[in-house]
Design a protein around this nucleic acid. Structure first.
Lengths: 254, 254
DNA sequence: AGCTGTGAACCCATTCACAGCA
DNA sequence: TGCTGTGAATGGGTTCACAGCT
């Protein structure tokens, strides 16, 4: 039953194999929970820096911006790391979550496409302070080759296979224009990258076993615009013009 | 009952008021659908640019990276814009979705925090090409004041109230460090901004009626890392080394 | 014949409410 | 007594499968 797979995109069939020696508890953690673990982790780090040693689910939930029932349910998928009647030990829980996510080890990351956004990402301190180390910056524009960025040089995209192999890179960030994103993605995957964070505004096709997450800046704004529009309409409605042409449905043919 | 609110964060109670003259059809479109509309819109624009006049739900779904049942269900919330036996008229559907989202009008946007990321956002062409126009860049660092960026000057954060008022800004983007984000947010809200896109890695508290969306770069990577770790574990299991210390579980006390 | 639009079934996620433990 | 951990209830979202229209 349920079988704990889930996996997002692509062929429904399988996922990663996992085969053999399946002796681990195999606690299938829901995807929605996984997406919140980093938020809890950050909240715990904040509490920790403030010198707080213990917290209740209520306090942690507030710090993370969720409600406490959800927090407790989420944590229950990881194990029983709290103490009834008392709460959670901040350091201990922090370590457990970090381990579960996989950020106790550190992950070499390649960024492809060093335009404005790529620059910003390369300099973003939030990566290195978690377990992510930017180990390579690639760009196909010859004009940018060799440019220094912090302590790193921008290299040609052709070096990708070598670099992925030598530096054991599993995670790639795509910050190229949309038109080149699929090609870059294919090259990354062929070279052995199995997780991709895509900033290019385009849908990427990848084989099963490769994870893609997408960050689309203009989509986020569009979602806000939708709600903003509704607020404006609601307001106009309240102010009560006879019948504001909310949606005149002036449809010209079909 | 249910009352079509949903609203993400904060106080469960209400949301935006919407009050009075509630006679409009009030088609409550699910939040999940709203988040996909911009994706469909982009796919339609691509088809349109390729000169394709008509498409089936199957084709559009593929272009958008979803399955066709989901696409049809989503579109059904907007109305019946297709033709049975034929498909959808690309231009027509594009217009309908754009109108529903609210990107037929254009939205003045302020960006606060012009560091690396703020620079990148200010130059990002994806905003202006949808209905978003960056009309102000603010920073509190005096060293950056007056700096030109494209055809815009960086202004002091103090001008915020005036600018929001004069330019009728409803949407703000926060790209400051985490520590200042809540203060900036409060000032934006006080000045009249009611939608915020937050790039700072921190939870923002806002009053009801204000929408916040969060883009957190390192959280995205952490989610990938989680899956990557599982892939690695599965693989090690299959290859079957005696017991690679992937995760020694060296937990010290409780 | 073909494709959309949609009720119904299913599945996942959130919330409730309380049992269980310190 | 107080807080965690969790079954059970609820609600939303996705998928199925087909009725309805062109």
């Amino acid at each position: 039953m349920t079988s704990a797979r889930s996996t997002r995109n692509g062929t429904p069939g399988e996922g990663v194999s996992r085969s053999a020696s399946a002796r681990a508890p195999e606690r299938g953690i829901p995807e929605a929970t996984i997406a919140r673990l980093p938020v809890y982790l950050r909240a715990l780090i904040t509490l920790s820096e403030r010198g707080i040693a213990t917290c209740s689910s209520e306090e942690l939930a507030t710090a993370a911006g969720v409600n406490s029932a959800k927090l407790r349910k989420d944590l229950s998928y990881l194990g029983s790391y709290g103490t009834r009647g008392v709460g959670y030990d901040v350091e201990y829980l922090r370590y457990q979550i970090a381990r579960e996510i996989g950020v106790t080890q550190d992950w070499p990351v390649v960024i492809v496409g060093i335009g404005n956004l790529g620059h910003a990402l390369a300099n973003y301190s939030g990566f290195s302070s978690r377990g992510f180390r930017i180990v390579a910056l690639l760009d196909s524009d010859p004009a940018r080759l060799g440019e220094k960025l912090g302590d790193m040089r921008i290299r040609g995209f052709d070096e990708i296979e070598t670099l992925v192999e030598e530096l054991d890179i599993a995670i790639g960030v795509i910050a190229t224009p949309a038109v080149s994103a699929q090609d870059v993605c294919d090259r990354l995957v062929a070279a052995g990258v199995t997780s991709i964070l895509n900033f290019a505004p385009t849908v990427l096709n990848v084989p099963a076993g490769v994870d893609v997450r997408k960050v689309d800046l203009s989509i986020e704004l569009q979602i806000l615009a939708y709600h903003e529009q509704r607020k404006a309409l609601a307001f106009d409605g309240a102010v009560d013009i006879v019948e504001p042409p909310v949606d005149p449905r002036v449809v010209e043919s079909a």
